[in-house]
Design a protein around this nucleic acid. Structure first.
Lengths: 354, 354
DNA sequence: CTGTTAGCGCATTCAG
DNA sequence: CTGAATGCGCTAACAG
């Protein structure tokens, strides 16, 4: 029923070994022979048996891309870019084609580990882990151990948009400079004259959340503000990276301190919710309250008013991660590359009212 | 170096077959034996060899989910829902765990076929194809043939958000009623009193584009409008499903016919661009021009003004598709289930100026 | 309920 | 440059 490599060999009047060789293209084969084999492949409509091939070769052509939330364009853009960088390697024919697949962890550490195990089970050629990490020590330990095991088995491991990890399991790390970006964003607000700035942070325990918040506080401290210490000023609220969380948190912040003249959100999605809350309170953006986000997702330029934010080169980072995973790019010295965010000023921020 | 099933068997003092049985859980094994095996698995930190298992069983635990654009929440939401419906089947342990992966075709028919081949090569357990289809006959034929081959090999095929296909390869299809939704949306506009309605359509040759547009024309025709025939009225423009395309097309439509009082966009993303163009022309929404979208993506409620649109139950559809792919839901009679869209009226549409 | 026996389809040695 | 032989690690009958 199902045609095998042996069938192709028979039709092309060569040995199975030869067919294998032309299919994998990593061994000299006479041009005429190759022709004949390829023709037989087409005529028989033969498709290589991946599992058999992976078993014999002890490695598969699967590449896994882990994301925290597939419905979030932040991850979608990176994953799409990585996937195309990985998939576009083939010559059109199904030759050295890798199967780049994205796995959605939903931000759950257990699912992250589960997916990694599943990928390990498949003997994946590479794994790209995107997005911020949970800071829980137990999970970090488990994750480190799992990645080490993957690396041992020959799987390349690339981190994208995530801080470096201990151990030498990781092939390359592309880290976003969230702290620097957060600092520059708040410096911008301070330069405009804002002094009471609310901060809608992401979920606690996440590196992205902490780094951006620290950047914010760095700027505040450098300006001689931020007295009272972290969290105690009542100007910070935590919540998930969702529009709804941004809305709720901003409502609360506004209620707590009506003198707020600016709100910085953990990312653009959260900023959208913040905008809704500000507007609902009868305040205008940016005349009464400035609002800023982070990431510069595609919709941010269309927000009304257009969102001031920190642009992260998500597409470029994804492409680079994909290449690193393929082994076509060489890892940066030290294995870690830090990617800066670019302050992008638009209409949602302006000087506070006099 | 790498621990195999035989190692586990030796440590647990049972035969390899028994180990296989407790791991797959689809065969009676004495509780005490199972205990012993599981302990050995943990102690040895054993991970099943997927390829070997797939080779022997002639089927893998891979499930592919194809999407047109992974950076688009429309697909992200469906894919995420399907993936969780598929992944949440396990008991926590890595038992009958399926590996649900999403593949980004970028809307390219070649990549769609390539991914399907790759999935076929992996002997995927199931494939979920989401989103509208290209109407090119050659591609439809190729796709039909490929799906038939997958089905022959035992792969379950589910279509989600895509019209039914010829042949009996498809296990189940969940089709969105794009035509009905499009009709209701335009009926809403007509009821408000609009008569000159621009339509920013998606790319030609796509089922989603055509169905929504036909719905629009159905409504127009029922109201005795639409004279001059399709495309000839100068009120329709085509473009990709992007914000930029919506912006460009709307600018052109507005230039072509300044008497327009409403613009219907192919989807919410396009509607966002349309809003920008309307606003840039110095017109107010909805006082001067009403704007409507389709899909009801999360950001649509946050648009200013909030977008009138047709709500599609993307999450629910994704979950159902996932279950169908797993074989835990039974296919609808006839194999086809049509999912209706719900007209969702918000602030972006209002009666035209007198 | 458990052990034994055969392959699954392919990539590699190793010869020629 | 090509063919023959071996085994990758596991599941699936088949017996017990």
């Amino acid at each position: 029923m199902t045609v095998t490599l042996a069938d192709v060999a028979a039709r092309a009047r060569v040995s199975p070994a030869t067919v294998s060789r032309v299919l994998n293209g990593n061994y000299p084969v006479a041009a005429s022979t190759r022709e004949r084999v390829l023709r037989a492949v087409d005529e028989l409509d033969y498709v290589l048996n991946g599992p058999a091939s992976a078993l014999a070769a002890a490695t598969s052509d699967l590449v896994g891309i882990l994301v925290n939330d597939i419905a979030d364009p932040f991850f979608g853009i990176m994953a799409g870019a990585a996937q195309s960088a990985i998939g576009d390697t083939g010559t059109g024919r199904a030759g050295g084609e890798k199967l780049a697949v994205v796995c959605n962890t939903g931000g759950s550490p257990e699912r992250e580990l589960t997916y990694l195990t599943l990928l390990q089970r498949q003997r994946a050629a590479a794994v790209v882990v995107t997005g911020g990490a949970l800071e829980d020590p137990a999970h970090i330990a488990a994750l480190t151990a799992k990645l080490a095991k993957l690396a041992d088995a020959g799987t390349r491991v690339v981190l994208c948009g995530r801080p470096p990890m201990p151990g030498d399991a990781v092939t390359a790390t592309l880290a976003f400079d969230n702290r620097g970006g957060g600092r520059r964003l708040t410096e911008h607000l301070l330069a405009l004259g804002h002094r009471r700035i609310g901060y809608v942070a992401g979920p606690a325990e996440r590196t992205t959340t902490r780094d951006r918040l620290e950047g914010h506080r760095d700027a505040l401290a450098a300006a001689g503000l931020g007295g009272g210490g972290p969290e105690q000023d009542g100007l910070t609220a935590h919540g998930p990276y969702t529009r709804a969380a941004g809305y709720e948190a901003t409502r609360e912040l506004l209620a707590r301190d009506p003198s707020l003249t600016a709100v910085v959100a953990a990312n653009d999605t959260v900023a959208l919710g913040a905008c809704a809350a500000v507007r609902e309170a009868g305040l205008r953006i940016p005349q009464d309250v400035s609002v800023a986000g982070f990431d510069d997702l595609p919709f941010s330029v269309d927000a009304v008013p257009a969102l001031t934010t920190v642009r992260l080169p998500l597409h470029e980072a994804g492409v680079r991660a994909g290449r690193l995973a393929m082994g076509t790019d060489t890892p940066p010295p030290g294995g870690v590359e830090t990617i800066a965010g670019e302050l992008t000023v638009r209409a949602s921020t302006a000087p506070p009212r006099a």
